[in-house]
Every structure is written in structure tokens, then in C-alpha cells.
């Protein structure tokens, strides 16, 4: 469960986002995550952006820990634990639409590869769009949305999803992105009678279902999730509303 991996490749996905590839024989499924640590940082959960024998994590430099990971290069080691959590439930008989928002796109990449499903990648601006080059190799229909309209659809990924799904041809939406995006996406799916599976995020410590610090209502994001079904999410009072800090105190989402 815990291992040292050596980085075999680093790719720049955008001005602030890099993918780190490594060989790791542990079996992992799309939507699962690992805990990653090197000395000088706090251990953090990272979604796997590749889940074959060659695996990868995709890191956006947004804080001290992710910036520490960005210092790493080929040949450097990372201590990882996992893979953890319940990923996407991929079924061939259901027509799927995949939505990735911002760096959340990394978490849906393995599902994109496995299903070849129609995909929306949303971002703030054209230079924030990541991994569209990889996605385009696997899917027939790839649509981009940007909040500022600098590339593709002018608007957010949920607006574009509603437009694309209005035909009724999809059975399920799989998505990962900021909670505000997922919140509206979930509401849209409920309104449209469309099923969905969303990958959620909370502050994690053990990652393995022990400590209970990442719970949303009574569900552990690390173990019962991070991918939850539409109905599980409908039952969560915390979703889109509040999270717990490292003390376990309730914090309202902004």
C-alpha cells in the first residue's frame, strides 16, 4: 500500500500545472487517488491522471505543498500510499458524458481513456485548459469551454453540459472540478433526470477510511468516495454548503 516511486517523465500541462509519470504496478481504477509526500511538504491527496502500469499525478501549483512537488524532476522519488477510494462506475451500456473543470480534468482523464466518451473540458481561460491534447486522442467529440470566451464555448462547463445533454442522448455524466461547478452540475442533472457520478474533495488526513476527518455528512470522501452517485449526493447536506477544517469544525463554503 505504501511505496516509493521514481519519476520517469514530467510534462508541462500549462503555465502552472505539471504531470509526473511513474511506473507503479499497483492496480488502480479511474477516479482513485493516492497520498503523495516528499520531505519538506505536507502529505496531500492527488488524483491519478493515468491508471495503467505507468501512472501519473497532475499537480497545479497553488500552495506550498504543490509548489514543492513542482520542484521535482525525472529520477526524483515520491513516497506514495494507495490507491485509495471508490472511482467511477464505468459501464459500456450507458452513454456517458465526461466533464472536467480546471485541474479536476486530471481526475477524469483515466475515465476518458477507458470510455472514449464525449468530453467537455472547462477552464477559466484558454491558457488554463489542460490535457485537451491527450483527451482528443481518445474521444470523438471534445468540447472546450472558457469562462472568458478566449477558447471554445464562452461560459462555464455546466452551461455547455446542459446544452450538449439537452438532446437526451446521455445516460450519465461523470465529472470532477471545483465544488461550485459540481454543485450546479448536480442540480442540472437532477432537473434533467440525468444520472451522474461526481468526484468530491475534502481535507484528508489518513486517506484510508480510518480517521473520519474528510466526512460529508456520514460519508468518508476518502473511502466511500471520492466518486459519489447522484442520489448519494442528493442526500448530503454538506455538499456545496459546508466543509470541515482540520479541527473538525464546520466551515461555510464561500
Amino acid at each position: 500500500m505504501s511505496d516509493f516511486i521514481k519519476i520517469i517523465n514530467v510534462s508541462e500541462e500549462s503555465y502552472d500545472t505539471k504531470s509526473f509519470e511513474f511506473r507503479w504496478d499497483e492496480k488502480a481504477s479511474p477516479g482513485q487517488f493516492i497520498m503523495a509526500w516528499v520531505p519538506g511538504m505536507e502529505e496531500i491527496p492527488m488524483s491519478l491522471s493515468r491508471t495503467n502500469r505507468i501512472k501519473s499525478i497532475t499537480v497545479k501549483a497553488i500552495g506550498p505543498d504543490t509548489r514543492r512537488l513542482h520542484e521535482l524532476g525525472i529520477g526524483d522519488s515520491i513516497r506514495i500510499r494507495g490507491p485509495y477510494g471508490k472511482g467511477f462506475d464505468i459501464r459500456k451500456d450507458r452513454k456517458t458524458l465526461i466533464v472536467g473543470g480546471g485541474v479536476g480534468t486530471a481526475a477524469v482523464m483515466p475515465a476518458i481513456k477507458e470510455t472514449g466518451a464525449d468530453t467537455i473540458i472547462g477552464a477559466r481561460a484558454s491558457n488554463d485548459v489542460i490535457m485537451d491534447d491527450i483527451a482528443s486522442k481518445y474521444v470523438k467529440n471534445l468540447w472546450i469551454s472558457t469562462d472568458d470566451g478566449s477558447r471554445g464555448f464562452h461560459g462555464n462547463a455546466v452551461q455547455l453540459m446542459k446544452e450538449k445533454a439537452s438532446s437526451g442522448e446521455y445516460d450519465v455524466v461523470m465529472a470532477c472540478g471545483p465544488e461550485i461547478m459540481l454543485y450546479h452540475l448536480h442540480r442540472a442533472c437532477v432537473d434533467m433526470g440525468l444520472d451522474c457520478q461526481l468526484s468530491l474533495e475534502r481535507h484528508m488526513k489518513c486517506g484510508a477510511g480510518v480517521c473520519g476527518c474528510c466526512v460529508m455528512d456520514d460519508q468518508r470522501v476518502c473511502r466511500d468516495g471520492p466518486v459519489f452517485t447522484r442520489d448519494q449526493i442528493s442526500a448530503m447536506k454538506d455538499f456545496g454548503v459546508s466543509k470541515r477544517d482540520e479541527c473538525g469544525r464546520i466551515v461555510r463554503l464561500g
Binding site: M1, S2, M35, W37, E42, E43, I44, R81, K205, C206, G207, A208, V210, C211, C213, E246, C247, G248
Partner: peptide, 18 residues
């Protein structure tokens, strides 16, 4: 963090009473 890891035969944790 790190506050937890698997080891042979169990877990080692130092949550620190959060």
C-alpha cells in the same frame, strides 16, 4: 500530514488529537 501510514501488521498514526 503525514499523520498515518500502513505498515506490515497494521497502521502507524500520529493524528495528534484533532
Amino acid at each position: 500530514n503525514p499523520t498515518f501510514t500502513e505498515v506490515k501488521g497494521g497502521f502507524v498514526n500520529a493524528m495528534g488529537l484533532p
